[in-house]
Write a protein that binds this DNA or RNA. Structure first.
Length: 429
RNA sequence: GGAGAGAUGGCAGAGUGGUUUAAUGCACCGGUCUUGAAAACCGGCGAGGGUUAGUAGCCCUUCAAGAGUUCGAAUCUCUUUCUCUCCGCCA
């Protein structure tokens, strides 16, 4: 959510910047509503003021034992008038809130302008794709050949498409990756490991920006549109972890807060029919190790570089070639003001595919969540900045390892850093 | 799942319809005193919003959340959520 005062004052500027991400801000409508809001709010508060002071006068008169009948006559009709004003005001406020809740974050000025992923800018490439002297197989073929380590058929039977069953050494490799990532981030990068709920309420989804706009991307235990009922499966640990800051005021000394969590993620993938239907790339359920930081506003841009580096470190240690993409205005997520995607090299697809997305949300989520810090003892609390990134998506990392570390006989050479997590094994055959 | 008791500012804790503009204590901040500190004393001290040039003043909202009764609600009524105690069930 954007600052309503800023939105009012800099409406034209905001509209221009939103346009770069393909979002049309209805300036005239907002101006008209704002005009009404101002008038109605002042009028309503004035009526409330009258009611309060007159009611108090009645109380005082009664305490003195005076006749309060004339005073009661004075307030006659005031309540009805107030109700009417309030009703109108609430309607206008609701309309303004509804608009505000659907406005994306403002892109940072360092973000390149572009319409779609074609406009993304490659920042750097790390590692060189390996040259194979045999025909590479994709992860689906490799996984199935290894004692049905990846079993999509069984998953269809027990759940449906876009799920997977893992077995034996592949399942263990998947677990090993998770442990490795968590250990790296907690022991080397200073994150605190968190275990969090996988089902969350509406307030949390609003806080991080999934609601009201993106409810269709989630799985809900009951329709989330109904007031107060139903929880939703988390689409990312970003939701429960970032919401730990909701309605909290941190001391300056507590910042930055750096948290990591491993959770399954659930996404309905509505609207992605026909894309990545084969394999592990796009699933309804996948595991991810998430990095979240809560920082002082002055630190958020440097924290984004740092956090992105933490995610990159995973790829470097696994010796997987990747590149870093700076997303353009048109390709960024709803709440982000700046995003780096990490794309890992997949030899079977002969291309780089997204494996992590690291974003600074600025104060966008913090404002929705009222996540704040106190800059100085006795000073007013200010909104902090939130950042998050995948460090990494575990399923896609598994894909990258299977494909990049495959050998001519179909076996998989286990990266050195994972071997301690695989009981010392060096190869999966 | 059943029965009962609760939810008040950072914490503790008064307050059962109008001198509550939420008492008081602790914590915290500023001051007096002191070589310095402690103690004592004095003052301040929640959050959100509106108006505004304003971090000034004034005003509104906020006592778990929502709805209601009333001229007036922390206080009365209803619904929901959560917490605690006991029982049941379970990992």
């Amino acid at each position: 959510m954007l600052d309503s005062k800023y939105l009012r004052a800099e409406l034209a500027e905001t509209a221009a910047r939103q346009a770069t991400r393909g979002f049309v801000l209805d300036v005239e409508k907002i101006n008209a509503l704002e005009l009404q809001r101002r008038e109605l709010q002042v009028a309503t508060q004035e009526l409330q003021n009258q009611r309060n002071s007159k009611s108090k006068a009645i109380g005082q008169a009664k305490a003195r034992g005076e006749d309060i009948t004339p005073l009661l006559a004075e307030v006659d009709g005031l309540g009805a008038e107030l109700d009417r004003a309030k009703l109108q005001l609430d309607a206008v406020l609701a309309e303004l809130d509804a608009i505000a809740a659907t406005i994306p974050n403002l892109p940072d000025l360092s973000v390149p302008v572009g319409n779609d992923e074609q406009g993304n800018v490659e920042v750097r490439r790390v590692g060189t794709p390996r040259q194979f002297d045999f025909d590479v197989k994709d992860h689906v073929a490799l996984g199935e050949a290894l004692d049905k380590g990846l079993d999509f058929e069984s998953a269809v039977k027990i759940a449906g498409s876009r799920f997977v069953v893992m077995k034996g050494q592949i399942a263990r490799l998947h677990r090993a990756l998770t442990q490795f990532m968590l250990d790296l981030h907690t022991e080397q990068h200073g994150y605190t490991e968190m275990y969090v709920p996988y089902l969350v309420n509406k307030d949390s989804l609003f806080g991080t920006g999934q609601l009201p706009k993106f409810g269709a991307d989630l799985f809900h235990t009951q329709p989330a549109t109904e007031e107060g009922v139903g929880m939703s499966l988390i689409p990312t640990a970003e939701v429960p972890v970032t919401n730990l800051a909701r309605d909290r005021i941190y001391d300056l000394a507590e910042l930055p807060v750096k948290m990591t969590a491993h959770t399954p993620c659930f996404r309905s993938e509505a609207g992605s029919y026909g894309r990545d239907t084969r394999g592990l790339i796009r699933q309804h359920q996948f595991d991810k190790v998430e990095l979240v930081q809560l920082v002082h506003p002055a630190q958020s841009m440097s924290a984004l570089e740092e956090l992105t580096g933490h995610a990159e470190k995973v790829l470097q240690l696994l010796e997987l070639p990747y590149r870093v993409m700076l997303l353009c205005t048109g390709d960024m997520g709803f709440g982000s003001c700046k995003t780096y995607d990490l794309e890992v090299w997949l030899p079977a697809q002969n291309t780089y595919r997204e494996i992590s997305s690291c974003s600074s949300m600025g104060d966008f989520q913090a404002r929705r969540m009222q996540a704040r810090f106190r800059p100085e003892e006795g000073k007013k609390p200010e909104l902090l900045h939130t950042l998050n990134g995948s460090g990494l998506a575990v399923g896609r990392t598994l894909v990258a390892i299977l494909e990049n570390c495959q050998q001519a006989d179909g076996s998989i050479a286990i990266p050195a850093v994972l071997q301690p997590y695989m009981a010392g094994k060096t190869v999966i055959a």
